[in-house]
Design a protein around this nucleic acid. Structure first.
Lengths: 141, 141
DNA sequence: TCAAAGGCGACAGAATTTGTCGGGTTTCGA
DNA sequence: TCGAAACCCGACAAATTCTGTCGCCTTTGA
C-alpha cells in the first residue's frame, strides 16, 4: 500500500537516466538495464508503456532506442505511474465493483471517490524535477 | 499501487460505524462483520490492530467489544493505515535495503526519501471527517 | 541481407494479501 | 461457580497480484 511497484521504479530510473544524456541521443533499454541491473525484457516493457503514453519516443532498428519526449520538469509522478500501471485506483471497487463483497452495505464508496480525486491531483503535482532536487530542507520548528 | 488494502477498508468501515453509535457503547466485531459482510476473524484482527494503536478501546468478556477512543475529526487516514498495516513505505528498499538488486546503482534512494516524507505528511492530513463530508464541491475554474 | 533494436503476448515463479482455523484469556450473568 | 460470549494471537491455506522469462515478430541501418 502506497508502495511504488518495481516497474514504476524502473521507469523513473530510466527517465532520470535519459534526462542526463545529451538531448536527442537515443538510449537503448539494454544499456540502461545493464547499468542499473534491471531485467532487460522487463525494462523493455516499461519503456514501451512510457512510449505509448507519449512520455518518451522510441525508434526501432539497429541504432534505435528511447529518448525523453518531455523535459523532466514537465513530467510528474502521477503521469509515470499511470503510464506504467494504468489508472490509479484508491480502492479496487472502483475498478471491479462486481467483485466487492460489501456492495450495498459499503459506507466508503462516495468518500473514497472524493479522497481518490484529491490523491490523483496530488501525485500529478509531484514534478520529477523533485527527484533530483538537493536533499529536502526540512523546516524543523 | 496507491490502493487501500481490504484490511484498511474494513478498519475504516468499522471506525465510521462506531462513530455513529451512541458514544460509549461497545460494539462487537461480529456485529460489524455481519452488517458489512466482512469475514469475522479478519475484522477481529483489524480491530485488534486499531486497539494496539490506541485508536479504539477494547474490552473482553460477554458484554465486551470496541469503541472509538478518539473522535472522528481527530483521526486521519495515515494513522489508520499505519495502525493496520504498519509503517508506510514508498519503496520497499526502505524496508528491505538488502533485497534490492539495484543497490548502489540506484538513483532513486534519496529522492524517494524526500517524496516519502511529503506523502506521509499528506495522508496524515486527511481527516476521517472527510469520509462523511458531503460530496466534494470541486472548484471548477 | 543480417545484426540490433523495439513491440507484444503468453506463461512460470515469487511474493503478498486475504481468509480460515484452533486454541488461548477475560468478563459477565444465570 | 460455571459456561457462554467476547477479545487475543499465531500458524496456515487459498487467492491474487507482481515480477521476471521466453519466443516470435517488425523495423532500421550499415
Amino acid at each position: 500500500m502506497l508502495t511504488l511497484s518495481k516497474r514504476v521504479e524502473y521507469g523513473l530510473m530510466a527517465i532520470l537516466h535519459m534526462s542526463d544524456v545529451r538531448a536527442g541521443d537515443w538510449v537503448t533499454a539494454k544499456d540502461m538495464a545493464e547499468r542499473y541491473n534491471i531485467p532487460g525484457e522487463l525494462l523493455g516493457k516499461v519503456m514501451q508503456a512510457l512510449a505509448r503514453a507519449g512520455l518518451v519516443s522510441s525508434t526501432p532498428g539497429v541504432r534505435g532506442g528511447y529518448r525523453l519526449n518531455v523535459p523532466l520538469d514537465r513530467m510528474n509522478l502521477g503521469a509515470v505511474i499511470e503510464a506504467v500501471e494504468g489508472p490509479v485506483l484508491l480502492a479496487d471497487c472502483q475498478g471491479h465493483p462486481d467483485r466487492c463483497d460489501q456492495f450495498h452495505a459499503c459506507t466508503l464508496k462516495e468518500p473514497i471517490q472524493h479522497i481518490h480525486a484529491q490523491l490523483v491531483r496530488y501525485i500529478h503535482n509531484i514534478s520529477l524535477s523533485q527527484f533530483r532536487a538537493p536533499p529536502a530542507l526540512e523546516t524543523v520548528p
